[in-house]
């Protein structure tokens, strides 16, 4: 990323956690905060910094759903597909969002503004169906009104 100074910052993160046990996941979380995803080069850097094999790092990255291997848009839309949202019509909501944004689940809009992700459960079940954009939750959505939530971004 231009102007991020990410590499120096990553070195700082590694210095902070070096020698501490169980630090791989927090290091990866901070790395993702930095880049928006986990680039291959960062995985190599982390492996070296924490004294691990790159394959071990890659194994952890691919195990957890939080970690991404590709860049994302500025805003991340999480469409809840938990049980209550499923029963409440999450599929139709996702389809409406795909249509409005012109992308499929997992993709990013051309202007890099939004990335659309289906997630398991956001824990707002009594207000289903629910969508989260970054850290804001939108509740009781319907096919017809869901696109309006993008206007805030």
């Amino acid at each position: 990323m231009v102007g991020c100074n990410c590499e120096t910052k990553l070195k700082g993160i590694l210095d902070e956690y070096r020698g501490k046990s169980g630090s791989l996941i927090p290091v990866l979380q901070k790395t993702q905060d930095l880049y928006g995803y986990i680039p291959k080069e960062a995985m190599e850097e982390i492996a070296q910094g924490l004294g691990m094999l790159t394959s071990e790092v890659y194994g952890v990255v691919t195990f957890y759903t939080q970690f991404r291997l590709t860049p994302v848009g500025k805003n991340i839309i999480k469409a809840c597909h938990g049980t209550a949202c499923h029963v409440g019509g999450a599929k139709a909501i996702s389809e409406a969002m795909e249509k409005a944004l012109g992308i499929k689940n997992g993709e990013t809009t051309k202007d890099k503004k939004f990335t659309l992700e289906e997630v398991a459960c956001l824990g707002c079940c009594s207000l289903a169906p629910v969508v989260m954009i970054n850290e804001d939750t939108y509740a009781n959505l319907s096919e017809s009104n869901v696109a309006s939530i993008f206007e805030n971004y």
Binding site: G22, L24, I25, P26, V60, F63, Y64, Q66, A120
Partner: peptide, 26 residues
């Protein structure tokens, strides 16, 4: 505080422990 990284199986005790240790949560 340890923030999970998204894996349902980590609700299982031994998987949760593996995850805190920084490994794949198996």
């Amino acid at each position: 505080v340890k923030e999970g990284a998204g894996a349902f199986v980590c609700g299982e005790e031994t998987a949760l422990i593996a995850s805190i240790e920084g490994k794949r949560g198996m």
